[in-house]
């Protein structure tokens, strides 16, 4: 479980996150949604410690992350896996080397054990015979899958995904979403996904937090979204014609019932 209390973050005097109180549950896919520029990525990067926060507290299973020193944080970071928007694979390393890197640095496994673990993780994300390829030789979906494999190679307790579907076609997006959900449930990870893809929200959003203008505006499940009267949330969720139609259909069904 991850919890934030009164989290505030600003850049050059401009408040980007204002008094964020949120709880992200273990074994669930927790989604942070919001428009571009609403502060989603800043929230995610503040929670993992990439951005120092101005005030507030961040807890990882009741350990106050904000009170820890660099060395103590490092121990928690070994339990964190993160999938970045662009994959963030090391360009000069092959797929195998990218996935193996955390093992090389933090495990006492033998080379054979490491290779087994790397192959297991690559199999888990349905990536076969790609060990010797470089990131430049991979498609967008493959890059994301390698990033997932690298993120789970050390059996993390916490998984952070920054817009895992950006730049992917709808079919690949569904594959990535389902993969993250499966991994979350299988290994009982606390997963936080940052997205503005409504398909992902309706597909895997077990707990959703809506960020608007740097504030937490709404919290609920994917089922609650359809019934919400929150104007800003509705403006965001039903911005596309398809989503509007889905809501109208839901309302019609409700009336008939």
């Amino acid at each position: 479980m991850i919890r934030t209390e009164h989290l505030v973050k600003s850049f050059d005097g401009r408040v980007v996150l204002d008094d964020i109180n949120a709880e992200f549950d273990k074994g669930k896919t927790n989604l942070i949604i919001g428009q571009s520029g609403s502060g989603k990525t800043v929230l995610l990067k503040s929670i993992v410690g990439l951005f120092p926060i101005d005030s507030g507290k961040i807890y990882y299973n009741d350990i106050c992350y904000t009170d820890l020193n660099f060395k103590e944080r490092k121990e928690i970071r070994k339990d964190i896996g993160m999938i970045f928007q662009g994959g963030a694979l090391l360009d000069s390393s092959t797929v195998e080397e990218n996935v193996r890197l955390p093992l090389d640095l933090f495990s006492t496994m033998t080379p054979a054990e490491k290779l087994d673990r790397v192959n297991f993780c690559l199999d888990r994300v349905n990536l076969h015979d790609a060990n010797r390829l470089y990131p430049s030789e991979l498609s967008g979906g493959m890059v994301k899958r390698v990033a997932i494999a690298r993120a789970i190679v050390l059996n993390p307790k916490y998984l952070f995904c920054d817009e895992p579907n950006s730049g992917l076609d709808p079919m690949t997006s569904v594959v990535i979403d389902n993969l993250i959900k499966e991994i979350t449930e299988e290994y009982q990870i606390t997963t936080i996904i940052n997205t503005h893809d409504m398909n992902s929200v309706m597909e895997i959003g077990e707990k959703i937090i809506f960020i608007h203008d740097g504030k937490k505006w709404w919290e609920g499940t994917k089922h609650d979204i359809m019934q919400s009267n929150n104007k800003e949330l509705n403006d965001f969720v039903f911005a596309s014609a398809m989503a509007k139609r889905a809501k109208m259909n839901a309302e019609t069904c409700e009336k008939r019932a």
């Binding site: 990439l50 070994k78 993160m82 970045f84 955390p102 640095l105």
Partner: peptide, 17 residues
């Protein structure tokens, strides 16, 4: 510099490197 702007350095930091 390219590693910085493509978040590869952030990825290393997250791993605890």
């Amino acid at each position: 510099g390219t590693m910085r702007i493509t978040e590869q350095i952030d990825a290393l930091e997250i791993m605890g490197v």
